[in-house]
């Protein structure tokens, strides 16, 4: 396990915490790696995480630090190599409808319409319901994400933001106990992202569902979450100390931008992440004894641009 010394200034001044509610999902000393022998890469090491009932937890990390592996394990799509991973005291051995997951790339089925995509999961999860009940349930969630006008469209006719709304509605409609959001907004443009952040916030505040958000956006994490856990840079990624977000709800993005508490927290989390990555890089550099590569001093033979034929060549 990586021990990182972070200056005290970077730690937030956490106030007195209310007694923590029981953990819904707990990970203890979980390790996960891929490959075997020489090519084996340890992705996650000694992950300890408690997801409490009714809280919104955000895991923030750089890309490539093993965030997706973490969600896949929580969803049950991957099994940990060692350590225990439990939900309500029962080990997680496979995917379950109790843990709904929203994928980064939407994972909508392109041959189904908006309604078809949502119906697929509703029909499966609520098999014993009557047809009319299921239909009404689907319509309710389509309305919740504001896509009533697009029920008959197929995913390729929707914008990225709309697709992610469908994906969100599909998962919410399953009524999972835990909602796992695997970088749900990172494929979207900045404007759509902020609109969807507010929408997720609104939906969450209505339902107060236990939720785990994986993201690489510190602002997003602070806006949405009760608690932020940084994921140290991988390989051998582990979780850093948690930062509590004690901003009042309902939160407003515009108002938060001026809040000193928000700024302080953002700086603290960002500084921590950057410091940890720098440290891990330094260690790697020290570990590898190869001398720095000397680049040869080359000059191009000609400064001419490549001919038009090359520029126009199909890729």
């Amino acid at each position: 396990m990586m021990n990182v010394a972070v200056s005290d200034e970077a730690r937030p001044k956490t106030g007195v915490r209310a007694p923590a509610p029981p953990a819904l999902i707990s990970m203890k000393q979980v390790c996960k790696g891929y490959g075997s022998g020489e090519s084996r890469v340890e992705v996650l090491e000694n992950i300890n995480l408690n997801l409490r009932q009714g809280e919104f937890l955000a895991v923030v990390g750089f890309s490539g630090s093993g965030k997706s592996t973490l969600t896949k394990m929580l969803a049950g799509l991957e099994t940990p190599d060692s350590g225990t991973l439990e939900m309500e005291g029962q080990p997680i051995i496979g995917p379950s409808q109790e843990r709904g997951i929203v994928f980064q790339n939407y994972s909508l089925l392109p041959w189904l319409t908006v309604r078809g995509n949502i119906s697929l999961s509703v029909d499966r999860v609520f098999q014993h319901w009557s047809k009319a009940d299921r239909r009404a349930h689907v319509e309710k969630f389509i309305e919740m994400v504001g896509l009533t006008h697009a029920v008959h469209r197929r995913p390729h006719e929707l914008s990225g933001g709309m697709r992610q709304r469908v994906s969100l509605a599909r998962t919410l409609a399953m009524k999972p106990k835990v909602l796992l959001l695997d970088e749900p907004l990172s494929a979207l443009d900045a404007l759509t992202r902020s609109v969807l952040q507010e929408e997720i916030l609104k939906i969450w505040e209505e339902e107060r569902q236990t939720c785990l958000l994986i993201t690489n956006d510190v602002d997003e994490a602070i806006l949405l979450a009760d608690r932020i856990v940084p994921l140290n840079a991988g390989p051998n990624a582990s979780l850093g100390p948690a930062f509590a977000v004690q901003l009042d709800r309902p939160r407003n993005k515009t108002a938060l931008n001026d809040s000193p508490q928000f700024k302080g927290l953002r700086n603290a989390v960002t500084n921590y992440l950057v410091a940890v990555r720098q440290k891990s890089r330094d260690e790697q550099q020290m570990a590898s004894e190869q001398p720095p590569i000397q680049l040869p001093d080359l000059k191009p033979r000609s400064m001419r641009l490549p001919s038009k034929a090359i520029l126009n060549a199909p890729i």
Partner: peptide, 10 residues
Amino acid sequence: DYMNVAKVLR
């Protein structure tokens, strides 16, 4: 991704 959807829905 589609297979993951199938797995989550079991």
